[in-house]
C-alpha cells in the first residue's frame, strides 16, 4: 500500500475534545478520534448518536461547540477557509447523493474538475466517463439527469463525483444503504481497489454489517457521546452493553460468520 502525501506519519484526521450541542441536547461530549492514512474506518452507532454530524463536523460543514479537528494536516476552521485550501483533497458522498439536479451526471462529475481548473475539456469528458464506469454505472448514465436515476444509481453517481479529483480521503455516509446485495458488495470491492491503488483513506458511516466485516480495518462505535475505536476482534470483547448487543445480535453473527469475514478475522488474529 502506497502512502500519499508529504508526511506519511501524520494521521489523516485527528479529532480532539469534540463537543457538539443542539440546543440543550449534547450529541458529542469530549470525543477523540484519530484516523490513520490509508485505513478504512467504519463509523457505527444507534440512531441519533451523531454519526452524520461527526462527518459533517470533520469536513467543516457543522461548527462544533468545542474541539479541534485536523484534516490532512490542515486545521478545520468551519468558516469555509480550510475547505477551500483542501479542495479536491477530500470527497464526500452524501446520503442521498446530493447531485446537482440541473446538471447531468457527467457534468456533475466535472464540477470539481472545472473548479480545479487547467484540465482540457476533452480530458475532463474522458475522466468523467471513466469515473462513471469506475463506480459501476452504465455508460449512458453520463448524459442523464439525477431525476432520471434510481436511488442506488444516484449514490454511485455521488461517489463518482466525490472521486472526481482522486482525493486522499473519502467520507461516505451510508454508501451501501439502498443498494441490492450484489451492488453493495461491488461497492465494497471498489472501495478496496481504490484504497489499494491510491492509498485512499475512507471514513464510512454504515449500518451494513457485511461491509463492516469485509472492508473496514477498524470500527468507531459512537456510545455515551464518545467513540470506542478498535478492530472487529477487539470490539467483540468490549464490555459496553450497546457494543455487545451490536456485535452479538443475530444479524451480526450471520454477517461475521460468513467465510470471507472468518478468513479476514483469522488472518488479522494470526
Amino acid at each position: 500500500m502506497q502512502s500519499p502525501g508529504d508526511s506519511p506519519i501524520d494521521p489523516a484526521i485527528t479529532v480532539r475534545g469534540l463537543v457538539t450541542r443542539f440546543g440543550s441536547q449534547v450529541v458529542h461530549d469530549g470525543l477523540d478520534l484519530i484516523v490513520e492514512r490509508g485505513e478504512i474506518l467504519g463509523v457505527v452507532g444507534g440512531s441519533g448518536t451523531g454519526k452524520t454530524v461527526l462527518l459533517r463536523t470533520i469536513i467543516g460543514l457543522q461548527r462544533p461547540a468545542e474541539g479541534e479537528i485536523t484534516l490532512l494536516g490542515e486545521p478545520v476552521a468551519w468558516d469555509g477557509s480550510s475547505t477551500i485550501r483542501l479542495a479536491g483533497r477530500f470527497g464526500m458522498l452524501f446520503q442521498e447523493g446530493a447531485l446537482f439536479s440541473a446538471l447531468t451526471v457527467g457534468q456533475n462529475i466535472e464540477v470539481p474538475m472545472r473548479e480545479r481548473g487547467g484540465i482540457p475539456s476533452v480530458l475532463m469528458d474522458e475522466l468523467a466517463r471513466l469515473k462513471v464506469g469506475l463506480v459501476g454505472l452504465p455508460a449512458d448514465a453520463c448524459g442523464k439527469f439525477p431525476s432520471q436515476l434510481s436511488g442506488g444509481m444516484k449514490k454511485r453517481a455521488g461517489l463518482a463525483r466525490a472521486l472526481a479529483l482522486d482525493p486522499e480521503v473519502v467520507f461516505l455516509d451510508e454508501p451501501t444503504a439502498g443498494l441490492d446485495p450484489i451492488g453493495a458488495s461491488a461497492f465494497d470491492e471498489l472501495i478496496l481497489d481504490l484504497r489499494r491503488a491510491l492509498g485512499l483513506t475512507v471514513v464510512m458511516v454504515t449500518h451494513d454489517l457485511d461491509s463492516l466485516a469485509r472492508i473496514c480495518d477498524r470500527i468507531a462505535v459512537l456510545v455515551n457521546k464518545r467513540v470506542v475505536v478498535g478492530t472487529m476482534k477487539e470490539l467483540v470483547g468490549h464490555p459496553d452493553p450497546w457494543i455487545q448487543e451490536y456485535f452479538h445480535g443475530p444479524r451480526a453473527r450471520a454477517a461475521f460468520e460468513a467465510p470471507a469475514a472468518a478468513d479476514r478475522i483469522g488472518a488479522e488474529g494470526g
Binding site: 457527467g106 464506469g133 469506475l134 491503488a197
Partner: peptide, 22 residues
C-alpha cells in the same frame, strides 16, 4: 500489483456516452 488493479479499472468502461444533454 497494487497499481495493476486501478489500471485494470480504467480499461473497462465505455467512452462513447454523451456528457451534456443534446
Amino acid at each position: 500489483e497494487g497499481l495493476q488493479a486501478i489500471l485494470d479499472k480504467a480499461a473497462e468502461h465505455d467512452q462513447s456516452a454523451d456528457i451534456a444533454p443534446a
